[in-house]
Write a protein that binds this DNA or RNA. Structure first.
Lengths: 278, 278
DNA sequence: AGTATTTTTGAAAAAAATTTTCATTGACAT
DNA sequence: ATGTCAATGAAAATTTTTTTCAAAAATACT
């Protein structure tokens, strides 16, 4: 799938009615676009030349020509606007999942607050102790974050047991950091744990999907993810990848900013782990 | 090399002096051609618009626009993955991470075996019991897979303790399925656990990064990921996302193929989980 | 609900790019 | 040296693209 077509999907909801008609036509006939002039496309998509140019600019391109070239670059006939259905092979599902992941990352790029991201990295670097809370679908994210930050030399522990979360939160103080992960931002136990952490003076970070939710109230730093609406939105399949991408970014960032001593410690971790391999 | 460029080579000897200049310029800078107008190219190649049009027609194309599109078609410029450096803001790191993820998914799409993927889905649907093994960086992937398959109504349990893995593997029989996750494919404990599982008659699936590795020997079905080489390749940051995408695909696929009864059970799971939210 | 404000839109004008025309050049054969 | 013919580029003609602007639609605000 070509990036421009995906980008169209990402920006679809921000478009006006006529722009959507253009988007629909292009996504339906990506191959038929190439020989068309802007006037012909305006006719076919029942819009106007001006709107097509605006459409191209919205995608970050200079104009219609660039749009055409951009779509020509890497053309595939796959329909991208379709939900998974029972006729799909598993590979086709994989392609759709990949598209959704891409959209989710792009959408997250748009909603995430750059300052918050930098603040989060700084908080992680400075914290004496880090606890990470996730439940259900977010438990594996918390585990992943814990693993990464620990491996980078931070004193980080993930908790996916709501009792342990309360215990851990209660033992925090103002040199510490609590990270809560919840797709909906409404998971009672996570919100409660962050609240306790905050009451104890710890700094709190929330990783949650964009929107108003209870978790925001108890978080000093909020890192929003965003994801396309699909039939599996409840599960937050895609926002989870965005959350992991955020964690990877924080990890890469903090590894980059560790001092020489810490870096050699990290390297010795990697050496030690070699013995676990054939 | 794309067809049009080859065609230019083929017809080169038949061309006039100015046409050769155009051919030379295009062959020297095929990427730089795309943003140029015919006038600009005329200047750069020290020829004229008219000659460029003739040049395009000689290649069997209708004109300059078609020439440009034709060269764009197969000239897919590779995505450059720049390494993270200390000057990057955390947001810039996020952009690079996103880009790497995108590359990784595309690469995985290329190396993954479609049949294996379908077989894996089928195996999951048919298994009486599923155990999932992951350690270290892959523990969270195993946890995620376990959570998803369990939520979809499969009898799946993830293990991230190498003793428990051996125990679980030992108790399997030929109606069961073991899934081993290891980026390198060389993690001793995971390989050993899969070996035991297989010896007990269970079907085995490996999720691992593309390449020859010990895990392949003990796996009935191998699902390869692939990821760009970056400074964090050891950690497998990106192949992990590809692995998760594979799991999401399998999950979506199996949910799609569950019968009505199972689907209503899944829905009642979602309802029950609502009570955990504010 | 009714009004103000903003956003979206397409027709037409303006600009730019492309294609065609045509006179000139220069290579080559005689 | 000169006629023939393909090759070439300047300029005209045409087509395409972009911008402008006023009307329409959507949205927010009483």
């Amino acid at each position: 799938m070509n990036r421009t077509l995906l980008q169209i999907k990402v920006l679809y909801k921000d478009m006006g009615k006529s722009e959507k008609k253009i988007a629909d036509w292009i996504m339906d006939h990506p191959d038929a676009l190439l020989p068309l002039s802007i006037t012909e496309l305006a006719e076919k998509s029942d819009s106007s030349e001006a709107t097509i140019v605006r459409f191209a600019k919205r995608l970050g391109l200079s104009g219609y020509q660039e749009l055409k070239i951009s779509i020509a670059q890497e053309n595939s006939k796959k329909v991208i606007n379709q939900d998974v259905n029972v006729k799909d092979s598993c590979f086709e599902v994989f392609e759709k999942v990949s598209n959704d992941i891409y959209c989710s990352l792009e959408m997250t790029k748009k909603v995430i607050d750059k300052d918050m991201l930098d603040q989060a990295a700084k908080a992680i670097l400075e914290a004496r102790q880090i606890v990470i809370f996730g439940l259900g679908n977010s438990a594996s994210i918390a585990l992943d974050a814990g693993h990464k930050f620990f491996r980078a030399g931070c004193n980080a522990v993930p908790y996916s047991d709501n009792h342990m979360q309360v215990i851990a939160a209660s033992h925090l103080s103002d040199t510490d950091l609590a990270i809560g992960i919840s797709h909906s931002g409404s998971s009672k136990d996570i919100v409660d744990a962050l609240k306790i952490a905050k009451e104890n003076g710890a700094k709190t970070i929330a990783i949650t999907n964009y929107g108003k939710s209870p978790i925001v109230k108890h978080s000093d730093i909020v890192l929003f993810t965003s994801s396309p609406e699909t039939q599996y939105t409840i599960l937050g399949l895609n926002s989870r990848i965005a959350a992991l991408a955020i964690i990877d970014s924080l990890y890469s960032y903090i590894v980059c900013h560790k001092d020489a001593e810490a870096l050699s410690a990290i390297q010795s971790v990697e050496r030690s782990l070699q013995s676990k391999k054939y």
